[in-house]
Write a protein that binds this DNA or RNA. Structure first.
Length: 450
RNA sequence: GUGGCUAUAGCUCAGUUGGUUAGAGCACCAGAUUGUGGUUCUGGGGGUCGCGGGUUCAAAUCCCGUUAGCCACCCCA
């Protein structure tokens, strides 16, 4: 009976055992330290948000992937009864809450809700988010995002700062080879419009364009055709793209009066500001970069490394999002790092330093030693700064030592009647096998010095 | 959402053209004289071969279905 219950976590979600947790904490500690060094302050928001907060912010694809929470008890029964009578059940009748899909929309809600926040609110947020997606390598249904955002500023310095924070984190983690791809929503819009593509086909054209480096010109051409975009328009799109790739293209565009002039000027400002930060050497203008989330309005970013199919992070400017929660629009820009993507690449590349886990010393108790003496010795060793595990059961010495091996503890301290009497501990180095009697007060120094 | 692959012990897998009580390594437990591990030796527990149906004298093995997982796309962090 009980055997038929699956003991695996739900699809796309994971348990983290000690070694996993240590690696995650190692990365998170660096992320947090760097974010705080940039002056960002922490924020945590609820796991659950109202569906009215979440819906309509991410585009149709995003709405699809939202986890919804079904009404409970009476509310559900009433909704079903009424729905069946009316002949239709609409979505908000069944659910009015959902799991957080990202950290940006909750931030926008918070900014609109607390009017006394600083004019330039720089917050960081490290929390899990949920997407009802099909899991794959590096893609989970529950995953952590590490966001930094600045609200209230239209300056490209803000954009450069969030990119700088991300670049600093990655460099401090040991990455040297990442690229921060950069583009601008207005440039994309101008590109598509000038190619003569209808406004309603804009997003599908951009999605096709985004795949250029993967499926090539012919592949994109084919996909554009399938989306109902005329061959002439596709040709014009590629021509515009080629022009954008030429050296000095951004400068020429910025100098002109065309549709993309403002976007080009902003990118140049951003690049100029970032020249003073670690982001400078990683930022790469990529006119094909599109990004799916619909709330972006200005510069957009994506972090790439060669050995990861997806991105390690992404972000951009979203000057319209907070205005969806209040009358007054507030400009904002942010960047998000995907913790598990970072971990995946670090694991593949063996980038983790030796992260000490578990006890440094296993205290073994022999027959004839009181529990109080054993606990007291462990307490003294801990007070001296050691990580100490006390073998709880009464067991033969060989069993206790074998257990120390499975723990990976470098030392055991053996406490027998003799040792108690003399106020010492038989300290054994498990790697060398050497064993010496050491006064309890000196054990910590010995172990830490080893 | 599309395509492909896999499913046998806690883990990694073997199982020959269908043929008797389904195996190995690792892990776990117990012993090899009573304060001492890692190596070695011996023994032990643990599987209705993902689930359901079919073919057959006989199915882990062949067929169909189903579920789960993995990989590549799509999309994303």
């Amino acid at each position: 009976m009980s055997q038929s219950i699956s003991t695996k976590p739900p699809s796309g979600m994971r348990d983290f055992l000690a070694a996993d947790v240590q690696r995650r904490r190692h990365v998170l500690a660096i992320v947090q330290r760097v974010y705080e060094s940039f002056g960002f302050v922490p924020l945590e928001t609820p796991t659950i948000e109202n569906l009215t907060t979440l819906l309509g912010k991410y585009g149709p694809e995003g709405d699809q992937l939202l986890y919804r929470l079904l009404h409970r008890r009476d509310k559900l029964r009433r909704a079903l009864d009424e729905g069946l009578q009316a002949g239709a059940l609409d979505e908000l009748g069944l659910a009015d809450e959902g799991l957080r899909y990202d950290l940006t929309v909750p931030l926008a809600r918070v900014v609109a809700n607390y009017k006394d926040l600083p004019a330039f609110y720089k917050r960081y947020q490290i929390q899990p988010v949920w997407r009802a997606d099909r899991p794959a390598k590096g893609r989970f249904r529950e995953f952590y995002q590490c966001d930094v955002d600045i609200t209230g500023s239209q300056s490209m310095v803000a954009d450069a700062e969030v990119a700088g924070a991300i670049a600093t984190v990655l460099e401090q983690l040991g990455f040297a080879d990442f690229r921060i791809l950069l583009n601008h929503r207005e440039l994309l819009r101008a590109l598509v419009a000038e190619a003569g593509i209808e406004a309603e086909r804009e997003s599908s054209a951009l999605i096709a364009l985004d795949k250029l480096d993967k499926i090539g010109v012919d592949g994109v051409r084919k996909e554009l055709g399938e989306k109902g975009i005329a061959e002439a328009a596709a040709g014009a799109l590629f021509a515009g793209l080629d022009a954008m790739r030429e050296p000095g293209a951004l400068e020429r565009l910025a100098a002109g009066q065309g549709a993309g002039a403002n976007g080009a000027r902003e990118l140049l400002e951003l690049l100029a500001a970032a020249a003073g930060s670690p982001a400078g050497r990683h930022l790469t203008f990529d006119p094909t970069l599109a990004r799916g989330l619909s709330y972006y309005t200005g510069p957009i970013f994506e972090v790439q490394v060669d050995d990861l199919a997806g991105s390690m992070g992404g972000g951009g400017r979203y000057d319209g999002l907070i205005g969806m929660f209040q009358k007054q629009p507030v400009p904002a820009v942010g960047f998000s790092l995907g913790l598990e993507r970072v971990l995946l690449v670090m694991e593949q590349r063996g980038m983790f330093p030796d992260l000490g886990i578990g006890p440094q010393l296993l205290l073994c108790r022999m027959a004839g030693v009181s529990a109080a003496d054993a606990v007291g010795t462990a307490t003294a060793l801990r007070a001296a700064g050691l990580r100490v595990e006390l073998f709880a059961d009464e067991a033969p010495m060989k069993k206790q030592l074998a257990y120390a091996n499975t723990l990976g503890a470098p030392f055991v301290g053996i406490l027998g009647p003799q040792e108690v009497e003399q106020g010492v501990l038989a300290l054994k180095d498990l790697r060398s096998g050497e064993q010496v009697a050491v006064p309890v007060a000196e054990v910590a120094g010995r172990v830490q010095g080893a």
